[in-house]
Amino acid sequence: MDHEIIQPPTEQPHPPRRVFFRWLTSAAGAVAAALVSVPFVGYLFQQRKQSVHWVALGKVAEFPFGETRTVAFDNPLRQPWDGVTAHTGVFVRREGPGEGAVDRFLVFAVNCAHLGCPVSWFPQSGLFMCPCHGGVYYANGQRASGPPPRGLFHCEWRVVDGNLEVQAPHYPTLHDTLDQTT
């Protein structure tokens, strides 16, 4: 069947009422769109407020001086449905007893500063090596060689009642590290 082509009416000056209605419609549309998108964009991108969690890694005495240990724990930043992905590893190195016998620890995230791959600790050579692109770090976390732009990410730690605790780490990236200093 053939459709009749509707001819637009010949040009006439719009009555003010029609102009106002067009304006009103645009405004109402914009308001409606904003009302929907603001909460939706917030839902997608806004970060949930997280309180600081501390995780106990064990008695200070369990960490021998000058040695590096891998400690795994369940990250309290997890959701109940995170499964094994919430398992988090950190390297803990207890530095020699400092002045005034203050405990000094180095706690590193396992993620390479290059692209986040998991580095491995080799006590024999005293180096961390990354399996992805061969980034290498010294025992103190400083970059030794390869593509990483910086050293390993340091976690915040504290000692409470003889227990070493670490601040639950998020996934560290270049501009969002785990401590304030580096």
Binding site: L115, G116, C117, C132, Y171, T173, L174, H175
Partner: peptide
């Protein structure tokens, strides 16, 4: 992790 690290360089 790699995708996150790349995005983190922005």
């Amino acid at each position: 992790a790699v995708a996150g690290s790349m995005a983190g360089r922005v």
